[in-house]
Design a protein around this nucleic acid. Structure first.
Lengths: 100, 100
DNA sequence: CAAACATATTGATAGTTTTCGATTTGTCAA
DNA sequence: TTGACAAATCGAAAACTATCAATATGTTTG
């Protein structure tokens, strides 16, 4: 991880809602209903589910999720019309290493 | 560490100059001249030294140092007319724990 | 006490982030 | 191929952050 990426990750961590999303994605099965079609969380949770839980607007959460993906805190996978998001544990580790 | 403090620490970590200050304070003797009166870095480094090294204005660095102290990333000690700043290793550990 | 130096505060401007509603684009399934 | 749903983008207003020069406040020392 370089300084630029570290700063972008730090920016993601300055907002309550984005932190909540990261927490929820740690335990998808405890925080979200089972997915109707997929039946598992191997790719994470789809954007709509996350947005519903935040009670913020669709555009705001889309912006959040995309910025978190851009700095690599999240990994996204498109499956048909849904986009799934999951935590990128590696980047969190790298961030901690850099901070140390 | 609670969410509020975590967010404030994250904010401190979103700026290149503040990151540099944290790095420099990790090895004061390698990054700053020996202090004329004190002769050691047990309380950290005085504000003027830090400001000189950044090449930013005194008021900006004063604001930075104070905000970093407020969120407890730094510990400050006033000795006469100087204020010394050092890293608060405990808060950095707590921050990492929270993030995990 | 006054001069000199360190630090904090103030007030201002420029830039960035937050957040939304509206619109657009992508994808599926009837 | 159209209707419905998911996601991304756009444009705008409000809030917040960065940064400075100028000024004020503390503190030491001659």
């Amino acid at each position: 991880m370089n300084e630029k990426q570290f700063i972008e990750v730090s920016k993601s961590l300055t907002n309550r809602t984005r932190l909540k999303i990261l927490e929820w994605l740690k335990e998808p099965d405890e925080n979200f209903p089972p997915h109707p079609t997929l039946g598992h969380f191997d790719f994470g949770v789809c954007g709509t589910f996350i947005q519903k839980k935040t009670e913020m607007s669709q555009s705001t959460i889309s912006t959040y999720l995309n910025s978190m993906e851009k700095c690599e805190l999240l990994i996204s996978t498109r499956k048909g019309k849904w986009t799934y998001f999951k935590r990128n544990e590696k980047i969190i580790k790298d961030y901690i290493e850099y901070l140390k």
